[in-house]
Nucleic acid binder design. Structure first.
Lengths: 145, 145
DNA sequence: ACATAACCTGAGACCCAGTCTCAGCGAGGA
DNA sequence: TCCTCGCTGAGACTGGGTCTCAGGTTATGT
């Protein structure tokens, strides 16, 4: 089953339709680079209204087709999401994003629940650093400059 | 040394001045409940312009006098921050916020660095759940309803 | 005391992401 | 066929935040 068929199925399971506009938004989303804004999608989908693009993005978010990444500067970008529960590792120099799901936050949340009496439902973790390429570049620059 | 004097010192260390407007914003911030928006501050500081309130909040953020909490619905609120590096545990029912700093994310980030070749600089973790009081309330409701 | 530069200010325009409203359209069921 | 309900685009609106600009304040050197 293709990616698109999967989306259609998930849509219909919730009583939504795969319409022309939604299809155009979806195609545009799939064609984006690693992460993007709604505005990027807007610019690459002619003939779809702003509100519809936003509505569709929200739908895709609900269906776990895309997720949101908080960049280093606080900007929220979208990203086609490969797995359900995962986190992001964002390069503060070039902005590339890696997903990871090995998430030992479980033990932390267990302790936390114990200590505070909270019943913990979910968490949101973003990690910022410098990717291998940017580290190399940086040491080179330091050597030259 | 009082809280205020500490802030003044930190300001001056960076070449800023403690002016009347900044003082009024700071007082308003200190008088807020657990978490609040810039708008809340605006409404409780008469005679300070909107831009100045925003500018001062940014300054306080830089100086680690306040921090930001992402609420369950995605809204960003501010909060007077007690310690430097810490995370938030947010109740999804009543909105109360606890700080915690026992942060075993260290070991996770170490593994992550190893696996990805990233040099990790920082992370952002927010945890959502239901506080003790709201859990009790919920079970009571279930029993009655 | 004075000049001057640097800093700070409020008002209001502006920006960006996202939502709301509303009238019109189109697909599917009875 | 008609009717309902979901979907649509246009455009107004909102909330959080930034920019600009002219004028006010403060620190500092003389």
């Amino acid at each position: 089953m293709s990616e698109i068929e999967l989306v259609i199925e998930r849509l219909e399971m919730r009583g939504h339709r795969m319409t022309g506009s939604r299809r155009r938004v979806l195609d545009a989303v799939m064609a984006q680079p690693a992460h993007f804004t709604v505005d990027d999608v807007l610019h690459s989908t002619r003939k779809v209204g702003r509100a519809t693009v936003f509505r569709t993005m929200k739908l895709l978010l609900d269906l776990n087709i895309v997720c949101r990444v908080m960049l280093d500067d606080g900007a929220l970008h979208y990203r086609v999401s490969t797995r359900s529960h995962h986190h992001h590792l964002v390069c503060i120099d070039c902005g590339r994003v890696e997903d990871f799901s090995q998430c030992d936050v479980q033990s932390l949340t267990r302790d936390l629940a114990q200590a505070t009496g909270y019943e913990i439902e979910r968490h949101w973790l973003e990690v910022y650093g410098r990717c291998h390429a940017c580290r190399l570049l940086k040491t080179e620059m330091a050597a030259v400059g």
